[in-house]
């Protein structure tokens, strides 16, 4: 299953990732190679009989719903690139483009 340059650009938009024009040909070739490689599992007849594999405990355990002290050593103002008065500062939302 090979992908085209346009498909890589479309997927990059979905993944919110800028892709450098210079690296696009190599990236397209490598993605095609990876997708061809992983597509080999399609050759095995689909099985609905194997017991689905779910790692970890059989049921999700919940913590008690209690208000507890702030568990962090320091707050988001020390983590975020821009933070003021309890809010993360970001640019305006802008025009939401169609990826269709």
């Amino acid at each position: 299953m090979s992908v085209t340059r346009e498909e890589v650009l479309k997927i990059a938009r979905l993944a919110e990732l800028d892709v450098d024009e210079d690296t696009l040909p190599v990236l397209t070739e490598q993605m095609s190679r990876i997708l061809e490689f992983v597509a080999q599992i399609g050759a095995v007849p689909a099985s609905e009989t194997a017991k689905p594999f779910v790692p970890g405990p059989d049921a999700v355990r919940f913590r008690p719903d209690e208000v507890r002290p702030w568990p962090l050593a320091f707050g988001p103002s020390e983590l975020a690139p821009a933070f003021r008065s309890g809010f993360f500062l970001v640019p305006k939302l802008g025009q939401f483009e169609e990826d269709g």
């Binding site: 919110e16 990732l17 800028d18 892709v19 450098d20 640019p91 305006k92 939302l93 802008g94």
Partner: peptide, 16 residues
Amino acid sequence: ALDMRALYRSTRGEGF
């Protein structure tokens, strides 16, 4: 970046 999505894309494109 001038808007939010451009911020996401440039940060992720340059950071990864």
